[in-house]
């Protein structure tokens, strides 16, 4: 312990800086209206206004937003895991023509900023008649190059002997993939799932573009309601931010056991 006093000091200072915005957010969320916007160094509210939470929920139908967001994010997460598992395996373990070219094309899609793809993708969604539907929120995000890349790297990281041994036992690709390989790359899959969930949960621009119906709104949109002409009630805005952030933090806590052993590092090699 004492040996690392400097390290602990530095780490604590950094950690304080890192969490300060969160602490400030949570504390401000429970301040009375009169204190929230004031220029003061006092961090602590004079009285904790727990009812700010109910007030926040009254401003916007967050329950509905949460339902939409979770329905979309969970579907996207499962689909991303499925598509990247299959494609990653194919790129890692199968022999077929133009493999490298196809893989490069996949990586190339990472180079396009999402904002640029907005209009063409919107046109496609409109063409498919998916405007204002869950399909529009879900399908375009069901595969991404980064996840395919990570899974492929994880498969490449597996010792070749596993596969050869399975082959000798008469195990085909599909059975090997789903019964032998999946448990071995579980940490990577959890990582992919976490990123997919975060990406979907935190999206704002796309949901606003492809939906207009108020029943289709997602939680990130809920934050924008607080910026209306009626003025920004800082405490409620912070309360809403905290409510929106909470689920991702919880999910991160749940997933982090895998995330740490995460073979992101293994995936990076090669």
């Amino acid at each position: 312990m004492r040996r690392h006093a400097v390290a602990y000091g530095l780490l604590s200072a950094g950690a304080l800086l890192t969490v300060f915005p969160f602490v400030w957010m949570v504390v401000t969320a429970f301040k009375p209206d009169s204190e929230a916007g004031a220029m003061t160094l006092d961090l602590w509210p004079s009285a904790w206004q727990w009812e700010n939470v109910t007030r926040t929920f009254q401003v916007a139908p967050f329950a509905l937003y949460f339902y939409n967001t979770f329905a979309v994010a969970i579907t996207v997460t499962l689909s991303v895991v499925a598509t990247s598992l299959l494609a990653g395996y194919a790129f890692a373990n199968l022999r077929f023509a133009a493999k490298n070219v196809l893989f490069l094309l996949v990586l190339a899609t990472m180079m396009i900023p999402f904002e640029v793809a907005l209009i063409p993708n919107f046109l496609i969604i409109r063409g498919l008649g998916w405007y204002n539907t869950y399909a529009a929120l879900i399908i375009p995000w069901c595969a991404n190059a980064f996840s395919i890349f990570l899974v492929r790297q994880a498969f490449l990281g597996l010792p070749k002997d596993y596969f050869d041994a399975a082959r000798i036992d008469g195990c085909g690709h599909l059975r090997f993939l789903l019964r032998v390989a999946v448990p071995l790359v579980k940490p990577t899959l959890v990582t992919v799932a976490l990123f997919a969930f975060l990406g979907s949960y935190n999206a704002l621009m796309w949901p606003i573009i492809v939906t207009s119906d108020k029943d289709m709104r997602v939680v990130q949109y809920g934050l924008t309601v607080f910026w209306g002409e009626g003025g920004v009630r800082v405490n409620l805005l912070m309360c809403a931010s905290a409510i929106v952030i909470l689920p991702t933090v919880a999910i991160y806590f749940a997933a982090q056991r895998y995330f740490l052993e995460s073979s992101l590092s293994a995936g990076i090699k090669g």
Binding site: A82, T83, S84, L86, A87, Y89, A90, F91, L94, F96, K99, L102, L105, V106, A108, T109, I112, V116, A117, I119, P120, N121, I124, I139, P140, C142, A143, N144, A145, I148, H173, L174
Partner: peptide, 21 residues
Amino acid sequence: MAVTLLFPGLGILAVFGFAPL
């Protein structure tokens, strides 16, 4: 096998990732 495994992921990427380019 490769076509089957790649189809779902690459199909989506082709339409929503590559076509916009």
